[in-house]
């Protein structure tokens, strides 16, 4: 007897998302490669203290500006510090920055978006209007303004990068909660007497989080990029922190004599950001979030699909 064909099901249906789709996931090679790079960076970051050949901040472990070679795999910088050791510790900083900035933006953004969509009314209107307003401006500019007044320091830079990403997470959560709110299980939960807080916390958010978390993996790359830019501009990490953006900024004066001081940190930022972008894209395609989310949010915000992707409020 032949097996019955499986009934068609919606990929985004939360009830089936957990049970059925897990076993059917097929990874594309780009997701595997980028995931491998991310795993490698993570391992290097975790084991940094054990694998560095030298103390990253030790001055004069070698001659100044030694070219990459057998003794110093990635050469030395203008103070005779080992570039490889600094790069390894830089990986740890980069990941910490990404995680903290995304954490801040994600936590605030999800709360803002969920409250705006669930409560609605004038509160929702005000919240989403402010989010739209902030969305008008490039996030680097918002982060720059925040750092300027909070004072240039690495912690403030990370906070600013996190806060400047709130609109991104708020908007995606808003769209997701709004479509989820209509579903019968929400009404059912209300009918058996669950409070609003419980409906949001126990029923809505768990169903919305898969969508938003996938988007967070894409936000990670822009957070890393923005934090590195701020450090490059002198508004983030301060010397002698082995932060990649800062290392690049310090090395630029030696660009003719010691190009590796510029090439290596920038290349590392680039590879990390590409890996997270490709990985995030791959995961998003895997769960087929792109189409549904884009259409749902666009239709809601602008009442039609023919508006440009990021209109000004």
């Amino acid at each position: 007897m032949s097996r019955q064909a499986e009934p068609p099901y919606e990929l985004n249906d939360p009830l089936q998302w957990h049970s059925k789709k897990r076993s059917k996931i097929r990874l594309s090679w780009s997701v595997i490669v980028s995931g491998g790079i991310i795993l490698l960076i993570t391992l290097v970051a975790i084991s940094a203290s054990f694998i560095v050949p030298f103390d990253p901040n030790q001055i004069g472990v070698g001659q100044r500006l030694t070219a990459p070679g057998m003794d110093f795999f990635l050469g030395t910088d203008e103070f005779g510090r080992d570039v490889l050791s600094r790069m390894i510790f830089g990986a740890r900083i980069t990941l910490c920055v990404g995680v903290s900035a995304v954490g801040i933006g994600f936590a605030c953004g999800v709360v803002v978006g969920a409250v705006a969509a669930y409560v609605g009314g004038w509160l929702g209107e005000i919240l989403m209007r402010s989010v739209d307003l902030l969305y008008t401006f490039p996030d680097v500019l918002i982060a720059l303004g925040l750092v300027a007044f909070l004072g240039p320091s690495f912690t403030n830079a990370v906070i600013a990068v996190g806060l400047s990403a709130i609109p991104y997470y708020a908007r995606s959560t808003y769209g997701a909660v709004l479509s989820e709110r209509q579903k019968p299980y929400v009404l059912a939960a209300r009918l058996i007497g669950a409070s609003h807080a419980r409906v949001v916390g126990r029923h809505l958010l768990p169903n919305v989080l898969p969508t938003t978390i996938v988007l967070a993996s894409l936000g990670f790359s822009s957070a890393v990029l923005a934090a590195a830019s701020l450090s490059f501009l002198g508004l983030g990490a301060q010397p002698p922190t082995p932060e990649w953006g800062l290392m690049l900024s310090e090395g630029r004066d030696y660009i003719t004599r010691a190009p590796w001081l510029v090439v290596i940190p920038g290349l590392s930022v680039f590879v990390t950001v590409v890996a997270f972008n490709v990985f995030g894209d791959g995961i998003r395609d895997l769960f087929d979030l792109k189409e549904n989310r884009a259409i749902a949010s666009r239709r809601f915000f602008y009442g039609s699909l023919r508006r440009p992707p990021r209109p000004i409020p």
Binding site: S221, G245, L248, V262, L267, V269, F270, N277
Partner: peptide, 14 residues
Amino acid sequence: VIGVSIPTFWLGLM
């Protein structure tokens, strides 16, 4: 993908 991932400051210096 390269366009959105490349750090502007690094591209400039390169």
